[in-house]
Amino acid sequence: MGTERKVNNRRKFFQTSAALVGGTLLYAIIKPFEALAQPKEEELKTDKANLPLWGMGVDLEKCIGCGKCAEACKIENKVPKEPFYFRTWVEQYTVKNDGTVKIESPNGGIGGLKQSVPDEEIFKSFMVPKLCNHCTKAPCVQACPVGATFISPDGVVLVDETYCIGCSYCIQACPYGARFMNPITKVADKCTFCYHRINEGLQPACVEVCPTNARIFGDLRDKESDLVNFLQVNPTQVLKPHLNTHSRVFYNGLSSEVK
């Protein structure tokens, strides 16, 4: 009895392992042929060249920190009104005479930023609007375990709200702090360049309301767009270039203090 059971166990074990190994092998063999079954890859690449590649330019010399962009973004995208949920916000940097840097952004700049440092202590001061940088090599996309965040064919980093499991890995992965957990939908939320607007031919809400035209939105592939012109005229920089995220939000007049 005992010997028989042992033999049966061994047989079962070998059967299961063989099936497992075989299954994996078969899948590995089938996988490369999937491309043959759907020869769409080639078409898609040519299609991509015809699509726009969205990007944004931010002219820091023009930004006055009125916070209209942050306010408009909240209205347009139904972002909760609490002062810690922002798709875009404005930071005020103040470099003091002793070299220390003060960064403040009360309520994301909505209602206009006010200087809290007395005039005589200020070495220089400037505004920096921040938003999702729409990286070409987005760390958030790599971090997502389920493929709920992705770069669309026209270069916008989007969130699939129905597919997101709310693990907030992407929020930790984002080096720009551009993501947050939406308390209403319970999924990750971020700037989409107002994807619904740009596909209707409108400008993103923040660009639409900016009173000094400090934000320039456009198609990087269209050589005649305002954005390409802005990039040609001004020496621009991206935030945190050492991270190699290849972001598509370009800043003109960026100081080295900006983190």
Binding site: G147, S152, T192
Partner: peptide
């Protein structure tokens, strides 16, 4: 695997359309 997953990459291709569905409150000048 959800419908349209993997059409353009490791994500649901229909999510692109979902993102377009939102209403524009700002109408433009």
């Amino acid at each position: 695997t959800p419908e349209s997953f993997g059409e353009y990459g490791h994500y649901r291709a229909n999510a692109i359309d979902d993102n377009k569905m939102s209403t524009s409150f700002y109408k433009g000048e």
